[in-house]
C-alpha cells in the first residue's frame, strides 16, 4: 500500500503488517464518529446561544462585554497551533524521530496554553465588570458555549502532555502513532469550532 492510498494523513506504519494498519484505520474512523457527535453538542450550544442572544435582562449586552482585540489574538494563537500540530504529524509520518515530534507538540502545547490564558483573562475581566453567568440568559449561554470549547482545549492540552510522556517512555510505536493521529484530528476539530465561535459570538456580537 503506497502512502498516497492511505486513508488518513500522518499514518505511516511501514514496518507493521496490514492487520495493524486496518485496525488503526477503524480506530481513526471511530474517532471521527466521536468528533461528529461532539460537533452536534457544540451545534446545540450555538443554537441555545442564538435563542438567548436577546435575553440580556437589562444587563450588559454583546457590545459591552466583547473585545475584538483579544478575540483576534486568541484566534491567531489557535490557528498557528493547528499548523504546528500539522508539522508534528509530518515529522511523525516522514521522519519518525521522537525528538522532532516532541518539539512540535511542545510548541503546540504552549500556543494552546497561551490561548487558554487569554480566555481566562477575558472571563475574569467580564466577571469583574459584573457580567457573570447568572446575570442573564445571554451570559449563561455565552459562558456555556465558550467555556465548553475552552474545556476541550484544556483536555487536548492534557492529552498532548500524556503523549509527550508516552513518546519519551515508549518511543515511536504504532500505538503511540495512532494516538497522536487521533489527537491531531481532535486539535484541528477544535480549531473549526473556534471559527464558529469567533464568527457567531464575537464578530456578530460586535457588529452594530
Amino acid at each position: 500500500m503506497s502512502t498516497r492510498e492511505l486513508k488518513h494523513a500522518g499514518l505511516n506504519l511501514q514496518q507493521t503488517d496490514p492487520k495493524t494498519h486496518e485496525e488503526a484505520e477503524s480506530r481513526v474512523f471511530g474517532f471521527w464518529v466521536f468528533l461528529m457527535s461532539d460537533a452536534v453538542l457544540f451545534a446545540l450550544l450555538f443554537a441555545t446561544y442564538g435563542v438567548m442572544l436577546s435575553g440580556t435582562a437589562g444587563g450588559p449586552g454583546t457590545q459591552n462585554v466583547y473585545e475584538m482585540k483579544s478575540a483576534f489574538i486568541e484566534t491567531l494563537l489557535l490557528l498557528s497551533s493547528s499548523f504546528t500540530f500539522g508539522m508534528a504529524s509530518l515529522a511523525m509520518k516522514y521522519e519518525g524521530k521522537a525528538s522532532r515530534i516532541s518539539v512540535w507538540l511542545a510548541v503546540t502545547l504552549i500556543l494552546g496554553l497561551g490561548f487558554l490564558g487569554m480566555e481566562m483573562h477575558d472571563f475574569v475581566k467580564m466577571i469583574g465588570e459584573g457580567a457573570t453567568p447568572e446575570r442573564s440568559g445571554f451570559l449563561s449561554s455565552f459562558f456555556a458555549l465558550v467555556s465548553t470549547h475552552g474545556l476541550h482545549v484544556l483536555g487536548g492540552s492534557i492529552w498532548i502532555v500524556v503523549m509527550l510522556v508516552q513518546l519519551s517512555v515508549f518511543g515511536v510505536t504504532p500505538a503511540v502513532k495512532t494516538r497522536i493521529l487521533r489527537l491531531g484530528l481532535f486539535w484541528h476539530f477544535l480549531d473549526i469550532i473556534w471559527v464558529g465561535i469567533f464568527t457567531i459570538v464575537y464578530l456578530q456580537g460586535l457588529t452594530p
Partner: peptide
C-alpha cells in the same frame, strides 16, 4: 503535504483577517 499545510495556514489567516477587518 507540507505545501498543503502551508496553504491551509495562509488561507486560514487571510480569511480570519478578512472577517475581522469587515467588522
Amino acid at each position: 503535504e507540507l505545501r498543503s499545510y502551508i496553504i491551509g495556514l495562509i488561507a486560514a489567516l487571510v480569511l480570519t483577517a478578512a472577517s475581522f477587518a469587515t467588522v
